[in-house]
Design a protein around this nucleic acid. Sequence first.
DNA 1: GTCTATAACATGATAGAC
DNA 2: GTCTATCATGTTATAGAC
Lengths: 208, 208
Amino acid sequence: MRTVPPKSKHEILQRAIPMFAESGFKGVTMRAIAGRVGLTAASLYHHFPDKESLYLAALKQAFADRSRALGEALTAPAPPAERLRLLILRLCERMQRDSTFTRLVQREILDGDEKRLRLVAKQVFHEVFAAITALCRELAPACDSFLLSTSIIGLVVHYYQFTPIRSYLPGSRPEYDQAATVARHITTLLLNGINLKQESEFRSQDSE
Amino acid sequence: MRTVPPKSKHEILQRAIPMFAESGFKGVTMRAIAGRVGLTAASLYHHFPDKESLYLAALKQAFADRSRALGEALTAPAPPAERLRLLILRLCERMQRDSTFTRLVQREILDGDEKRLRLVAKQVFHEVFAAITALCRELAPACDSFLLSTSIIGLVVHYYQFTPIRSYLPGSRPEYDQAATVARHITTLLLNGINLKQESEFRSQDSE
DNA sequence: GTCTATAACATGATAGAC
DNA sequence: GTCTATCATGTTATAGAC
């Protein structure tokens, strides 16, 4: 007997995503997911061939739903430096408001075996990462685009991953929790490096 | 009568550190630690008042044993840019060869509650972080030293945390696993930014 | 054909008795 | 130590409801 309308894959994954983020792959059972969705464990197997497929689909969907703004930034009709600025800003805004995906990936790095990590790299990150390296090639042909891409990602991602500890470090201030402040710092650092001649982050009369 | 010499705190923690890195705070029982050390669980409580104290001491010791080279780099008799270069190189070398501490911290960020994270920030990171911000103030007075410090740490730490996925991303190459290569890239990026005006690997601007 | 539930199977971990 | 009972979990088989 059916009392409720059938669940779509998207709905199932939407429920599973925060569970995997909270407890990791092994920490979440098929029965727990089913319970949260309003199904039985067996029914999940109509939508996904096995637990690992469900898990990978969850990672994929979590990333896809969160990387839309990044794709827009990367393909915007603007000079490469402006696309970089927008990419970093969107990434900061996204990570500021939601740490679910970051936690998913952190857990996967800690617990995943080689085979699954390869699948994650291929199925989740490959496309967006390639787009970022393409931007880097355009932006700084003299620089190693692979290393530069990882640096851009690392600057933003680690900043927000580290937040639970960072906020208790000496010198922490409220404005460091604002995405715009962080994004501006990172963008300036990437474009100009440390050795700013005389300009502070506030003096930019020649821009626009 | 005693058949084995008493264990020092250092020995106990040395055994506990990889266990916490592998399975996190909750994933390691006092009995498991005791078994590894060759003691009973009750004996551990002679050395540490509770599990959390043992855990924090493990984090502290893991970091202290691994941050010695960083302290040397930070206090070297050299100009600030050279100290930065050395700091990054030592950090890369350390993380390249041993991911134990990084995994400890990642697990702590995922699983720790606010109170314990505050203790970690204070007891583990505070001192070294303050030394890095001091270097940043000296190096780049016009730049926000707090944000700059987190960026330096983030560039290195995230690079190595991301290794299990990074190695499967498009464009990955063997030399990216060499600490000297990574350290050089990060140092150059920090000092000069993307827009390399004059650099060793520099190519003259081609026509568009 | 699509979706779900009931029941059951297989394995691995755990606990307790011997 | 071994054996056994028990439980949790991924998974499959089959049948019923739209």
